[in-house]
């Protein structure tokens, strides 16, 4: 791997890599199948996958950076840019679609002043659509982090944001 992409110790990067190294240290004899779990833990720890962490992973696992990048960009769970403190997942699955998910999306876009897939300026919320969160009986549904909100209306969805 390229020396030039490792993090420089003088700290030009403002990402604290201690968490990343702690995660990697659990995998000192890693196999390729550890890549996704490693990325998931990094995504959890930082709220995104920092560029500098990618370099650490490639150094630690000897998986080429290009491969790692390919994986990160394939799965919707991973983000290469910082995300908000909370993730709002609005369900756009079939049941929610026929019960008014479109209105909810519209309302949230207005309330948050961002588009789908974006993060608010204060980094409080990231807002993204997701196809079915498995609670179709409560359609329309959204999740904020790991919490479900069911039988929504556009107004209820907007009001829920105030709890955060």
């Amino acid at each position: 791997m390229h020396k030039s992409v490792t993090v420089n110790k003088e700290g030009t990067s403002d990402v604290d890599l201690a968490k990343c190294r702690a995660i990697l240290s659990k995998y000192n004899r890693s196999t390729p199948s550890d890549l996704i779990p490693i990325l998931q833990q990094i995504q959890d720890a930082y709220g995104y996958v920092p560029q500098t962490a990618l370099s650490e992973i490639t150094a630690g696992t000897r998986i080429p950076l290009s491969k790692i990048y390919g994986v990160v960009t394939f799965y919707s769970q991973f983000s290469l840019v910082p995300r908000g403190k909370h993730t709002i997942k609005v369900c756009t699955g079939t049941a929610c679609h026929i019960k008014g998910a479109t209105d909810i999306k519209k309302k949230l876009t207005e309330a948050l002043q961002i588009h789908e897939g974006e993060t608010t300026k204060d980094f409080k919320f990231t807002y993204e659509p997701v196809a079915c969160v498995g609670t179709c009986f409560l359609a329309p549904v959204m999740m904020i982090d790991n919490r479900y909100y069911g039988k929504l209306t556009a107004d209820k969805a907007e009001a829920t944001l105030k709890n955060y």
């Binding site: 390729p32 199948s33 998931q40 394939f74 919707s76």
Partner: peptide
């Protein structure tokens, strides 16, 4: 337990295997 990472196509068996192997789930 392996957790998916958000890709519908990974339900397809060969894509699922690729995903467990740490690859793009194709």
């Amino acid at each position: 337990i392996k957790m998916g990472a958000g890709a519908f196509v990974c339900g397809e068996e060969t894509a699922l295997i690729a995903s467990i192997e740490g690859k793009r789930g194709m």
